[in-house]
Design a protein around this nucleic acid. Sequence first.
RNA 1: GCAUGUGUAGCUCAGAUGGUAGAGCAGCUGACUCUUAAUCAGCGGGUCUAGGGUUCGAGUCCCUACACAUGUACCA
Length: 498
Amino acid sequence: MDNQNQLIQARQQKMQRLLDMGVNPYPNRSSRSHIIKDLWDNQQKFTDDEQKVTITGRIIALRRQGKVGFGNVADESGNIQIFVRKDNVGEENYEIFKSFDLGDFCQIEGSCFVTQMGEYSVRATCVTMLAKAVRPLPVVKEKVVDGKTIRFDEFHDIELRYRKRYLDLLLNPEHKHAFELRAHIISGMRRFFENRGFLEVETPILTPLYGGAHARPFNTHHNTLDMELYLRISIELYLKRLIIGGFEKVYEIGKVFRNEGMDRAHNPEFTLLELYQAYTDLDGMIELTESLFKFLAKEVLNTDTVTFHNTEINLTAPFRKASMLELIKEYSGFDASDFDYDKIKTFCLEHHIEVTSAAGAGKLIEEIFNHFVEPKLLQPTFVIDYPREISPLAKAKPDDPNLVERFELFIMGNEYANAFTELNDPHDQRKRLEDQQKMREMGDAEANVIDEDFLEALEYGMPPMGGIGIGIDRLIMLLTDNTSIKEVILFPQMKPEN
RNA sequence: GCAUGUGUAGCUCAGAUGGUAGAGCAGCUGACUCUUAAUCAGCGGGUCUAGGGUUCGAGUCCCUACACAUGUACCA
């Protein structure tokens, strides 16, 4: 018998003992009068009047001493010591207490008092088993020294933490913070958009064609229809159809799926916000983005700045705006504004920047930007004036056909938002997608595909508008000072263990 | 993808130069009616990630595979 089975068997034996006593180790009902935080918030009152309280929670520590025992019970709001004495609960009930193991859910009835050692506790008059844990939890012990909690044998194997997130949340409760903040940021966004009159919508995730981004999709198959379907890689083309349909302000927050490599910054499924607003443009999206960050900082984070890896980032001041070509010149000294392919290619080769056959001058300019500029943009910066070649859904600048009205927002060397004045000319849009198609044929597997249904919709007329996408996971990483996306996704993609 | 590192008990970790696997916690038995990393005494617990190889002998050396981390390339 292996060790784990031995541990499980010991717990099952205790469960059997309960059954033999006629006690259900998994009762249907429980009751509680107070959450544990209530007891802590009103210590004086509860100790003075000795009122009866009933708490529920998980046993997170046990210290037995013969005919008396201590333990700690935790619910979501906190944890408190319990004191169980045979004389207080009676012989039969004490047998139930003796069946308690670390990890069991229990209900404790009693009253609050302070022990001789000065610890605020619940003196039990009756204990109840609510749910027996038959599998042993990793044992983590804590000690408080000078107000600081020292944790022993912390559950910190990174792989186990991700594979068994429930144990991570249970044993390292501080890891809940990123997920709570995530929820608050998303609900804050919804409030912000609702205040501005946006409608939240849901569009298909399973689609006959994928588009709106530069990525490879996941394929699947519908049995009854006997057709190939793709998981969406962006939300863009459906949201634009809604603007065509007469909605003027829409957004969606949802999962998109990209079939690419995984690393500390990429999970195959991730959460994207996309938003479209009719009768505005890139400047409108800049205003909206600055206001959104300001709102989230003030209303959710209650601060102006966040600290990421010891760098203070001001989220509320106006962000810097600079064109991609200017920034390239600033950081590399190279002037690419003439879009001279041969000259740009030579520069790339000189600086060991990969030049693929499908890449034109615009793509190479982006590569130069990624290499020389991107890592240097620490404080929030709107990079504007993108090459048209790499922006097939953005409207060209009226005075420069090589460039489009687009920005990406960079903070700490990473991209946090991508926005355009959206292309609404169906002829231009068709041509752009055809150019993408050519790039596919030249080997760019991530280039956009031609979506005839979308083009037809465009032909019915789409108002001028601005649109933006914000990667939520990355944003949460920034706000929680995490460098791994797995720390902000509850159940990150993992390869099977065996 | 590539490079480097890690993988030993349920958990956290030791195991120089190859010689039949150790600790703490948790578990079991016993003692203990105010403890708090409770304490004390005793006991049990391992296909050392998997598969090959070298060797009289491999947790340790070599090869392959797998998982995870970090760096790097591409992408949000």
